[in-house]
Amino acid sequence: MKRLFAHPSLAIGLIATLIFLAIGVVSLVWTPFPIEQIDIPRRFLGPTPEHWLGTDNLGRDMLSLVMAGTWTSFLVAAVAVVIGMGVGVPLGLAAAAWGGPVEWLVLRLSDFIFAFPAVIVAILVTTLIGPGAPNAILAIGIFNIPVFARVARGGALSVATLDFVAAGRLAGLNNAMIAWRHLLPNIMSLLIVQGTIQMSLGILSEAGLSYIGLGTQPPETSLGLMLKDAQGLFLIHPLLTIIPGLAIVLIVIALNIAGDGLRDAIDPRLRQGNPNVLA
């Protein structure tokens, strides 16, 4: 644990991420004003003691919207990562453990999904089930599957050549048990790092999908949706664009710093003084 926090970037990244996450969680139980509360006479207020970040074009409190939007972003990105991991990691492990036709199939499947950018998947899902946050989750989640499959396979392959895996096989473990007992624990760190990176990408994708109208729908809100609503007003009320934009940037930076720090902290190959396990 101490080792983890020896990396200043990790500490900064994690703390910043946790702060944003906390803001998002708080929005579930409390926001300064209800986010659906439209009050036309009080629109475009600019920062005041009552409305710290001002109000938007419909008189909604910007701080409340940013809080709720942050939660939507985290939720969408996190569930998408869970989908990606839940499907992708078993596929990747299976590819590494069985090899042969299974591996070929997993790799071609990854290539196939990779060929469709998240936006195209989102458009497809929209036509099938209509727009909304679940649509964004599904689209980003599907995009995450091959990412995790490849990372899991790559990591597992390098572990699979080690002696203790061979020992396990001699002890009579089958492919599934090898994958579960020996491969998965040893690629956990890789997966966590990749998960953080996919989180930040997921938040960007959610913002992008909402911005083009395929993600979160009003009266719910997300940071991307706020950007979209404000863009026509950018030249008159720039704050309405800058605030959600800044929030997205800060969250993504925080997650990336945390991801970099995590990699430095837990990747044994980068740790100084340790013998290289792959040697």
């Binding site: 659906e36 509360q37 419909l58 009003p218």
Partner: peptide, 26 residues
């Protein structure tokens, strides 16, 4: 249309006050 999308959100908020829940579909 901008007028429709904006009016829609405002009306949804006004209807919510009397208990009518509107789902907005763009």
């Amino acid at each position: 249309l901008a007028y429709a999308r904006l009016s829609g959100q405002i009306i949804a908020s006004q209807f919510a006050e009397v208990g009518i829940k509107l789902e907005l579909i763009n």
